[in-house]
Amino acid sequence: MSQLEKVQAEYEKFPQEFASIIISTVNAQGIPNASYTPFVMDEFKNIYIYVSGLSSHTTNIQVNPYVSVLFIEDEAKSPNIFARRRLNFDCTATLVERETEKWQQIVKEFQERFGEIIEVLRGLADFRIFQLTPTKGRYVIGFGAAYNINGDNLHQLVQVTKDNLSNS
């Protein structure tokens, strides 16, 4: 197995290590907000979040659908704090309409993953499900070991070199 194949396999498993993601949104005035939320991910790498309409990030998504998502290795597990493994995606958010077949399926996945709290959230009218569709990303596994991810094929890594650095 080549080095790229090893990295590729690690990349495919990396998001499964997490129950929540860090998300960055921007409000109507252009002010950024960082937060976190539990998530589920489908086989196409679409990320689904189930969030309160009262939260800043939900309000921000409704005025600006561009969201940055970050999966980052636990500090305690990283051999070097300056080179934590991380995966980020630039995404576009779309609302999943409540009570549709897709909404029911995503709620079921949240219930399987997070348990009975989802029954409580399901009864709260202000909670919404957004689909975050990645348009591009980057997977970093250490110093000088970064890989670009293109939205056309979210399953293919392209090693960052000085020649393609601007594609990030």
Rank of each mutant, 00 (worst) to 15 (best):
Q105E: 14
T59Y: 01
F143G: 02
K45M: 04
D163V: 05
E12M: 12
Q159G: 06
Q62N: 13
T37H: 09
I23K: 02
F127Q: 02
K102Y: 05
K108W: 02
I22D: 00
V140I: 15
I118C: 01
V7E: 07
L54S: 09
M1W: 08
D74T: 05
S55H: 04
A19R: 13
Y147W: 15
M1R: 11
S166M: 11
V158K: 15
S56Y: 03
N150R: 08
Q159D: 09
S52N: 08
E75T: 09
G144H: 06
T59W: 01
D74V: 05
T59F: 01
E99D: 15
S35T: 01
P15F: 10
G151M: 03
P32E: 00
D126N: 07
I117D: 14
T58A: 07
R98K: 14
V120H: 12
T59I: 05
H57M: 02
F143V: 10
R85H: 11
I61E: 00
I118A: 02
Q105A: 15
L95Y: 11
R86M: 04
G115C: 01
I81P: 01
N64G: 03
K13D: 12
V160N: 02
T94M: 01
V67K: 00
E12I: 05
S78Y: 05
N88G: 09
R98I: 07
N80Q: 10
L154S: 05
S55Y: 02
L70V: 08
V140T: 15
F14L: 06
N153A: 03
Q156V: 04
V160Y: 01
M1L: 11
S168F: 08
E97Y: 08
G151R: 09
V26F: 00
I129S: 03
T161R: 12
Q3T: 12
I149W: 10
R122Q: 14
W103T: 07
Y50K: 07
A83L: 08
Q104N: 15
G115S: 03
T100P: 05
E43D: 14
V158T: 15
L157A: 10
E109P: 00
R84Q: 14
S55F: 05
I149K: 10
N80P: 03
A125I: 10
Y48G: 04
S166L: 11
E116I: 06
I106M: 04
P65C: 06
I106A: 11
V107K: 14
S20M: 08
S56D: 10
A146W: 05
F71T: 06
A83P: 02
E10S: 13
I129R: 06
N88Y: 13
Q131E: 15
S78A: 15
D90H: 13
Q3K: 12
V67L: 00
V120A: 09
L95G: 09
N46Q: 01
K6R: 13
E17Q: 14
I141R: 14
I49P: 04
Q62L: 09
Q159N: 09
P15M: 11
P38C: 07
P134Y: 07
